[in-house]
Design a protein around this nucleic acid. Structure first.
Lengths: 237, 237
DNA sequence: ATTACTAGCTTCCGAGTAC
DNA sequence: TGTACTCGGAAGCTAGTAA
């Protein structure tokens, strides 16, 4: 929507930051050039262009000029800025995965049902997981790569603990939805111990995911992990 | 500080708004070109440049590419955006005037001492003005021009009133400081009735300005009117 | 359908310099 | 000191087109 040329942005911002919104401020083209990282001649040209476009006004002041940003110019910059802002802020913060359901409700199920994790799930995630994790096998290298980097994002962090006999590592949880919203309150787990397999995604939910969305082993499944700031009561290495 | 080229901003923002921060998203150069208002070829070049600079990564996906913004690329855009934001927000919102003190404590003093105004001053400005306005004669056309437009800014608005015999117009107040901070709690008045003289600035304060800053008729004086959102309990035509 | 190369045009910039 | 002109070169863009 904004009509202003990209090259003029820095010049306009520079003028505004010098107070040229409401006052005529004295700015030399040499100074201006220095500030925007261009030559004096370029700055001079910018001012001429901007004046021609009605974005600034200038009045002679002895040998120099005093410059003020017009309403039109200010509107232009603000609207450009606003549209950039909204574009950046509306950026969806989610990571998509796609893979196939594999059987694997053995080991994971056992660990996640331990009291040391269960009470943290309830407290931090808001529910106790249905016993057993759903395992999703990723095949596309793009998804495996994303899986490898998943743990770097801010997470809901479950502390590790010890039961006297052995220790259990931390768990990072990421809220996720299944198959384009068929289930919204799932969560993907990143475990401290399993750095061994980047092609596997472990998913939990308050109920049986297979039953809730009607899938069985071997079916394709989509998992969308939300990275927005919902997750991050804690942040950890 | 940002190293990214201005021409690439729109491209990066477009990618980010499509979710390319966390996922590889499929974007064709033709679509991208359309979105940034350039040709398909230009978009293609942008992607090549950005990839070369390490701001994005691409993977072939059949015939198309899937694109993701790297950490470096995201940092670059965010920092550019942040510096623009801070430059725009730090922009001083004040209008400077300079002129000479003239005698003129007659008429203004009378009006401003009317009960209908006095109680509004106390309520909205926080003090009762010292009886009498300080008049400042502006000579520079730049200041006269600014004076003419002063009333368009958000103000502390005093309602007009009637005493049964005649009516008294509204008054807009703008907090102001005198001579670079020698006095901080002055206020400039814009009266409904006086559209007749753009070269005169009427200033009030809780005490005698002349005494407080040590000036007399004929002296040069600087008045800085603050336009920030401090003023604007009301807004009015 | 896609990406991206080439050629040619336009825009932008910097150096030199007039005023 | 200032601004801003001309001019040559660099950068950016588009159209055409190859792959």
């Amino acid at each position: 929507m904004p009509e202003i040329k990209l090259q003029h942005i820095l010049t306009m911002v520079q003028l505004l930051s010098k107070g040229a919104r409401h006052n005529f401020v004295e700015v030399t083209t040499a100074d201006l050039g220095r500030n925007i990282g261009r030559s004096q001649q370029a700055a001079s040209k910018h001012l001429l262009d901007l004046e021609m476009a009605g974005y600034i006004e200038r009045v002679r002041r002895g040998q120099k000029f005093a410059v003020r940003v017009t309403d039109k110019g200010n509107t232009e910059i603000q609207s450009l800025f606003a549209s950039l802002k909204s574009a950046l802020e509306s950026a969806p913060a989610a990571i998509d995965f796609e893979g196939s359901v594999v059987s694997g409700m053995g080991e994971g199920a056992y660990y996640m049902s331990l009291e040391g994790y269960k009470k943290q799930f309830l407290e931090k995630l808001g529910y106790e997981p249905y016993p057993g994790t759903l395992n999703v096998r990723l095949t596309d290298p793009v998804y495996m790569n994303a899986r490898r980097e998943l743990g770097r994002h801010p997470s809901i962090f479950l502390e590790g603990f010890s039961d006297g006999t052995r220790t259990y590592g931390w768990v990072k949880c990421y809220r996720a939805s299944i198959n384009d919203g068929a289930m919204e309150n799932a969560a993907v787990l990143v475990l401290e111990r399993t750095h061994y397999d980047d092609s596997m995604l472990e998913v939990i939910a308050p109920v049986s995911i297979k039953d809730a969305v009607g899938i069985k082993n071997g079916d394709r499944i989509k998992v969308q992990v939300r990275i927005d700031n919902n997750n991050s009561p804690h942040q950890m290495p």
